[in-house]
């Protein structure tokens, strides 16, 4: 410990940088590589907050190193020593003030974006997809197209998609990082999440809230294609896939297992709403109304 303190910290900084360097490619950072307007609003706010907090973090870390190096107790130390100095109105105002200003700025943008993300501007009619988290799979129902899929869904690009979320199992959370932040799926309730993809691609999605044994395998894909491709795909599913029967749905829910991707050419009408009702939605009239609107 006779070396100056900062040499230790230099090693530390090196250690900090290792993971950054080794992890390489930037497009792996899904959250920072948005593919739609919702994720983009969130990504911009993330970058803003990072910059704002660094205004405090970096000086404080430097200050810590400098103060420790300068005021270490050594026989030949000539730095001033003022053991009774313990008050300074000016300094106190400065460091109550700086965080207040920074929090003020972050807070303003936070509130703005919180309200902005509630509903998107709608140049086009949204596509509605009803999502049910099950043990341990994802069921997607397209009420307008009357098709259903398991563990993946297709969406058209440049069109807002309204995901209506519920769960017929313990609560999970529906997260597609490149399209936008997550929202919980809860039994007996219908939650809404608006997402949109600007460009075609296969977007990684995963359940984000623990639901037991098979939870780790609850990944799904959100595949974005242009509107034409989407229509073709729905037609193809309608033509080739088997229908989802009530018994088929029961099999999906009661067999607690992990399955691959599946498609269905139809599903029993009103199944999603009925599911919410019997899982407790009947006690929450406003929820039920919202789900069936």
């Amino acid at each position: 410990m006779n070396k100056p303190f900062w040499t230790k910290w230099r090693h530390l900084m090196f250690v900090l940088l290792v993971p950054l360097v080794t992890s390489g490619c930037g497009e792996r950072y899904l959250v920072l590589n948005p593919a739609g307007p919702v994720a983009r609003i969130e990504q911009r706010l993330i970058i803003l907050t990072i910059v704002m907090v660094l205004i405090v973090v970096i000086p404080v870390i430097i200050l810590t190193a400098v103060i420790v190096a300068r005021y270490r107790d050594r026989p030949d130390r000539t730095a001033p020593y003022m053991p009774e100095w313990s008050e300074s109105k000016v300094l106190e105002v400065v460091w109550w003030g700086i965080p207040i200003v920074i929090i003020g700025i972050i807070g303003t943008f936070t509130v703005r974006d919180t309200f902005r993300l509630v509903k998107p501007q709608l140049p086009e009619a949204p596509l509605t997809i009803q999502v049910t988290s099950l043990n341990w799979k994802w069921l997607f129902q397209y009420p307008d197209q009357n098709i259903a899929t398991v563990n993946y869904c297709k969406i058209p690009t440049n069109r807002p998609v309204e995901f209506v979320l519920t769960s017929d199992a313990p609560m999970n959370s529906f997260w597609v990082p490149q399209l936008g932040g997550q929202e919980y799926t809860m039994p007996g309730m219908a939650m809404r999440l608006w997402l949109q993809a600007d460009k075609p691609g296969v977007y990684f999605g995963h359940g984000a809230n623990f639901t037991g044994k098979g939870y780790a395998k609850m990944a799904f894909d959100v595949v974005a294609t242009d509107a034409q491709g989407f229509d073709q795909w729905t037609k193809q599913v309608k033509a080739s896939a088997p229908p989802l029967t009530k018994q088929g749905y029961k099999n999906l829910t009661t067999k607690q297992d992990i399955v691959g991707k599946q498609e269905f050419s139809s599903f029993p009408p009103g199944m999603f709403e009925a599911d919410i009702r019997i899982n407790g939605g009947m006690y929450m009239k406003h929820q039920l109304k919202e789900a069936t609107d």
Partner: peptide, 24 residues
């Protein structure tokens, strides 16, 4: 330094719209 970084990421998490991305 530990707590300053932890506190800073705490402020980042506190910002609701970004928390949609960090949560869990």
């Amino acid at each position: 330094p530990n707590f300053v970084i932890g506190g800073a990421t705490g402020v980042m998490l506190a910002s609701a719209p970004t928390d949609y991305q960090y949560h869990n």
